[in-house]
């Protein structure tokens, strides 16, 4: 399913939660949304799900407006930031509610998921921990084999083993069924493993929107050592995001002009010069950390 967010603005009285957001999510891709608390991630997700109406602009899924089309929701799985269930319901009641609500509910898939996430069917949902509630939501929303999964902080409360299992399941879902995934998280490490595209939201505005592959190709790190210090001015040029120096060793993060810079550095006869991979976390720290953005909030431990 293709998601189109077009010039979207959402205000709550005087507060602007989202400002002029435009993005597209291709069918069968995994799209990551990162941003600190209060950036507007949940608001954007609720608008995509048709739970909130935009003040301006629109969101369409496969060319249809979801808030006007409840049949479209039959193909969309949604994990909210906090799982709310009917307190008097047991886990088995929730299974029944979803099983009877979604025509595409797959008993086989349900059994597979139940083997991964072992939940007590007789337990009341109000007695479940946050992690167990999330596991229940994962089972409920994956068992009907959705064409689109909208996930708001889906791994919150999961232990590292379950978190890894969930991400694997998610990637299998995309590979086997071509499911489109729109995922919001604090955790860049997770997104690095699974995402095709990434958007950064900060104070309601979109700061960046790129393919992960392009981003990693574009931003590289040069590690080099020189017998003598480099002359001043060599590393003061556009495209250099960060320079760290430890003795005679330089660590230079470059966004644009990698080839030119490498060629120039070679003229200073480096003792060694290597191109190193850079993590998503480092890219974001260098690209935005210096601009006063709350980058530390994006980086989960």
């Amino acid at each position: 399913m293709k998601i189109v967010v077009h010039e979207l603005t959402k205000t709550f009285r005087e507060k602007t939660a989202l400002e002029n957001i435009s993005l597209e999510v291709s069918p069968g891709s995994i799209f990551g949304l990162v941003g600190p608390n209060g950036a507007g991630k949940t608001t954007l997700i609720k608008i995509i799900m048709g739970l909130l109406l935009p003040t301006r602009g629109f969101v369409s899924i496969d060319g249809r407006l979801v808030h006007q089309d409840h049949r479209l929701k039959a193909r969309i799985g949604y994990l909210a930031d906090y799982q709310r269930y009917y307190p008097g319901f047991k886990v088995e009641d929730m299974f029944r509610l979803y099983r009877e609500s979604y025509e595409t509910w797959s008993p086989e898939r349900f059994q597979e998921l139940c083997r991964v996430f072992d939940l007590p069917e007789n337990a009341k949902v109000k007695n479940l921990s946050k992690g167990m509630r999330t596991q229940l939501a994962i089972i409920l929303n994956l068992a009907f084999r959705p064409a689109l999964l909208v996930l708001d902080e889906p791994t919150a409360g999961l232990d590292p083993v379950l978190r890894r299992q969930f991400l694997t399941i998610l990637m299998d879902e995309v590979a086997e069924n071509g499911t489109t995934v729109f995922i919001s998280t604090h955790n860049l490490h997770e997104l690095e493993r699974i995402c095709d595209h990434l958007a950064i939201l900060h104070q309601g505005r979109l700061l960046g929107l790129e393919s992960l592959e392009d981003l990693k190709q574009k931003v590289r790190k040069i590690q080099a050592a020189f017998a003598n210090p480099l002359p001043a001015g060599v590393l003061q040029r556009d495209g250099i995001l960060n320079v760290e120096q430890s003795g005679r060793v330089y660590s230079i993060t470059v966004q644009d002009g990698l080839d030119e810079l490498t060629a120039e550095l070679r003229t200073f006869k480096p003792l060694f010069l290597d191109l190193a991979d850079i993590s998503l976390e480092e890219i974001f720290i260098h690209r935005m950390g210096g601009e006063g953005y709350a980058i530390k909030q994006i980086l989960a431990p």
Binding site: G50, L51, H70, K73, A80, R84, P87, S101
Partner: peptide, 17 residues
């Protein structure tokens, strides 16, 4: 009050239903 209406509205039911 319990915010379960959000859960319900995300499911394939119209508001009339």
């Amino acid at each position: 009050d319990r915010e379960t209406l959000g859960l319900l509205l995300a499911m394939p039911y119209s508001r009339q239903d």
